[in-house]
């Protein structure tokens, strides 16, 4: 196990690469999801107030 973590002496380069790669994707996905939820909530508030632009049912 410790041999696996040592990455042949290159642990200081291999592990940060994976943290940056996977972490970067995860953060991007979570931020995008939060923006989606915020936009949906905003639209929901407007529609609840009877302000739908065309008065037709929204998709989804």
């Amino acid at each position: 196990m410790s041999e696996f973590l040592a990455m042949g002496g290159y642990a200081a380069f291999v592990w940060p690469s994976y943290v940056i790669g996977i972490g970067g994707l995860a953060v991007l996905a979570l931020v995008s999801l939060r923006q989606w939820r915020a936009a949906k909530a905003e639209l929901g508030r407007l529609e609840a107030a009877g302000l739908s632009r065309r008065g037709r049912r929204e998709d989804r």
Binding site: M7, I20, G21, I22
Partner: peptide
């Protein structure tokens, strides 16, 4: 390149 080649799977 030893174990540094594993960086390739992200890079």
């Amino acid at each position: 390149q030893g174990d540094t080649v594993r960086i390739m799977y992200v890079h």
